[in-house]
Amino acid sequence: MEKEDGIVARNTLLQQARSAKGLIHKHNPERIVVLGGDCSVELAPFAYLNEKYNGDTALLWVDAHPDVSIPEDFEHHHAHVLANLLGVGDREFVAEVPRFFNPEQVLFVGLNDMLEPLNSEPLRHMKLARVGPDEIKQDSSRVLQWLEERKPSKIMIHFDLDVLDMKEFRSLLVAYPGTYEEYKKRFPQGSSMETIIRVLQDAAKSYEVVGLGITEHFPWDSLFLQNMLSRLPLIGDIHNKERLAFNNL
């Protein structure tokens, strides 16, 4: 796909964000669950919820990556979405956010990779709080303490599945079978599924969750299985020789 103003498929993504915004405002929901897609799908719903509840919200960004890049540094918008929600980045994406999140509303949970954008302008002055994977292994106290200090009336949760330990959960883009072993060694170890479940349950026991986004699901095994079944006798086409474009194994 072509790059437009430093962002791959910029106009298509803008159109999708605006379409989502229109649908949300049509129904005016109290709560939203988003199943991605990449992280950019949360731009419209989280912007809506923050405006709806007058900024009396907290956003737990449960992710291996901060998603605060700008077009000058990274061309894919999925890594820009939190920057946009904070009022930073491409002007048209930022214009889709009627009420910006304050840095004090955001807590990174499980963050352990691609931290460089946090030190770029103007993010370095925002001093976004974060709790690393080691700090949530035993209990959720650091997350609950942060929430207790802010006492938001509502919370939103961004849950990027790449925060999970790749040895335990493999339905991720980076877990492509051909490079899985290499990446498993190269990337920092993520959090266990049980750890993330416990943290989110603990937060939800004390605060009302109005937004939950689950993103970056990429089930390689299911895709390969679907392609295989479509080419087998009785259930598929035995003359079909078409492999998935990304299957170079």
Rank of each mutant, 00 (worst) to 15 (best):
S222I: 05
V97K: 06
A20D: 08
P122L: 07
E30R: 15
E30K: 14
F159Y: 14
A58T: 13
F100A: 15
M228T: 14
L14G: 04
L161F: 06
H125W: 10
L111H: 03
E116V: 07
A47W: 01
E72Y: 08
G6D: 01
P152M: 03
L60H: 10
P133A: 06
F224K: 09
S192M: 01
N50F: 11
D237K: 14
S19Y: 10
N102C: 06
K26N: 05
L234H: 10
Q145G: 14
P152S: 11
S153V: 02
N240I: 00
L115N: 03
C39T: 03
T12I: 09
V209A: 12
E242H: 12
H158G: 03
V106R: 04
E96K: 05
A17P: 02
E4C: 00
V94R: 02
D73P: 00
A83Y: 05
D162S: 06
E4I: 13
V33K: 01
L13K: 06
S222T: 07
R91C: 06
D56A: 08
E135C: 11
L82D: 12
D5P: 02
H158C: 07
E216D: 10
E216F: 05
L82S: 09
Q138L: 12
E51A: 15
V97W: 11
R99D: 09
N50L: 08
V34Q: 04
H77R: 02
E4S: 03
K184N: 11
N50I: 05
L229N: 13
F187W: 10
I7E: 02
K127V: 00
D38Y: 01
G87S: 07
N28H: 07
E2D: 11
V210Q: 01
H77L: 12
D73N: 11
L107C: 12
K184S: 11
V97Y: 09
R124N: 14
L128D: 04
I7K: 00
D5C: 06
V163N: 02
L223C: 08
H25T: 08
G211S: 04
D90A: 02
R186F: 14
S222N: 09
F100M: 14
L212E: 02
F218V: 04
L23S: 03
H78G: 06
M114E: 09
E121H: 00
L35G: 12
E51G: 07
E92Q: 15
I197C: 03
H76P: 01
L200N: 14
L59G: 07
V94N: 05
P29I: 09
L147I: 05
T195C: 13
K137Y: 09
E96H: 07
P45R: 01
N50A: 13
D165P: 01
N240V: 00
L223G: 15
P133N: 05
L59A: 09
L107S: 07
V109C: 09
L59K: 03
V174G: 06
V94L: 04
E194V: 00
D237W: 13
F159H: 13
L244R: 14
R170G: 02
D67H: 00
R150F: 03
A129M: 11
W61Q: 13
V174P: 00
R10D: 04
R231W: 03
D67S: 04
K127G: 02
P98M: 04
A245W: 00
L86N: 07
F246E: 15
E181K: 06
K137F: 11
Y207K: 08
Y48N: 01
L60I: 13
